[in-house]
């Protein structure tokens, strides 16, 4: 059974998910990890910016962070059933 990979960049407002892997070029990956996007942490999409729903604001490890969807696409997630 293959499951299509799901990424933070594809989530909508109100979605909650569990971070499975944080990837990307080493600089970005380190930044993402430092800011709290660690495997095993829960991330929830709280806001979407106007004009194209990009960037998004998510809550992870107690902090509200804004990032663009293309950055968020470095973060692989499993959707949590609400």
């Amino acid at each position: 059974m293959t499951v299509d990979k799901l990424y933070l960049g594809g989530m909508k407002k109100g979605d909650r998910a569990l971070i499975v892997a944080t990837g990307g070029p080493i600089e970005i990956r380190r930044r993402l990890l430092e800011m709290g996007f660690l495997e095993g942490s829960v991330v929830e999409v709280i806001h979407e910016a106007p004009f194209g729903k990009d960037p998004i604001a998510v809550r992870v490890r107690g902090t509200l962070l804004a990032l663009r969807r293309n950055e968020a696409n470095y973060i692989e997630v499993h959707l949590e059933v609400a």
């Binding site: 930044r31 800011m35 604001a57 902090t63 962070l65 804004a66 990032l67 950055e71």
Partner: peptide
């Protein structure tokens, strides 16, 4: 390349 955002929104 388009630069990243990744910014905190403090309470």
């Amino acid at each position: 390349v388009k630069p990243p955002l990744l910014m905190e929104l403090p309470t």
